[in-house]
Design a protein around this nucleic acid. Structure first.
Ligand code: FES
Ligand code: FES
Lengths: 143, 143
DNA sequence: TCTTAAATATGATTTAAATCATATTTTAGA
DNA sequence: TCTAAAATATGATTTAAATCATATTTAAGA
């Protein structure tokens, strides 16, 4: 449903939300270890996120990745969409071509409500909000 | 979240629920085509389901797969558990070792409710109920 | 009891996701 | 302007899931 890559991306972005800003950029090697994702792997994901403008970066010495204030207002779904593609979460749970209520598969009625609720929450929850939860101790980041 | 194999298994079991019983067994080759799953692939899955007693089968001429009345009372989650293993649906959505509310990952609060609701429904909905839906036209099987 | 039709057991191959590796480009600072 | 430190671009390798292939076992019916 959500790929491993997306999970890693979310972890990395949250890490940046908590520890970085315009003045405090962070290098991949200092991100990969605390979030427990191989450096070369998370590097590739961060590059993709940067290319799609979900996170910010600068090259060269003193460079690194960070989240601008704008970046922090992004929602979680944006990350999943960039890494996994838009279709993934909307796909039928039994692999029908299109999932819709007019031509529902046998478990559509069973599962669709949960999925809709989840997707709404992923869309309306910002990176900032999740980062705040972690800072307040309501959730834990080092995974 | 739910593997392809599990999806195929669910489709096959529902097909059996609708078209088979003790007196009307069905061969793999007559199952694979209507549910649109490669024969050798679904054969392997059906064999596993039969071994775990989720479906019934007999070998030799006139043999095939079918669902006994008992089999039809199974719930959907049983199938997923047999094919994917019990852990899969209970796993943390961000790949934490254990998912629990005492040590929640950043999206636990966001996602857990939806997952719990989904899992409850998967547990309490029987194969028979889903098959009835299809028969009544409330949902569609040929996928 | 022989033949044949079916599931079963087992393993090989393919494919897509995950992971790793490295040459290139940019930029800060000497 | 040179050097070094960082991201970027690109592609190779590995791994797990999906898919395919086939020899073996069982049972019905002639
Ligand atoms: S049609 Fe299958 S989940 Fe909607
Ligand atoms: S701890 Fe991550 S989903 Fe529960």
């Amino acid at each position: 449903m959500i790929s491993n890559s997306s999970k890693y991306a979310i972890k990395a972005v949250l890490f940046l939300a908590i520890h970085s800003d315009e003045e405090h950029k962070i290098m991949v090697k200092d991100i990969s270890e605390p979030i427990n994702v191989p450096q070369a792997y998370i590097a590739k994901l961060l590059q993709e996120l940067a290319k799609q403008k979900l996170i910010s970066s600068t090259r060269g010495p003193k460079g690194g990745f960070y989240l601008s204030e704008e970046d922090k207002k992004r929602n979680v779904m944006d990350i999943v969409n960039v890494i996994d593609g838009e279709k993934r979460l909307n796909a039928c749970l039994l692999s029908l071509e299109r999932c819709n209520s007019d031509n529902p598969c046998p478990i559509h009625h069973l599962a669709n409500q949960s999925r809709v609720v989840l997707m709404k929450k992923l869309k309306k929850t910002t990176i900032n909000e999740l980062a705040l939860d972690v800072k307040k101790g309501k959730s834990k980041l080092p995974l």
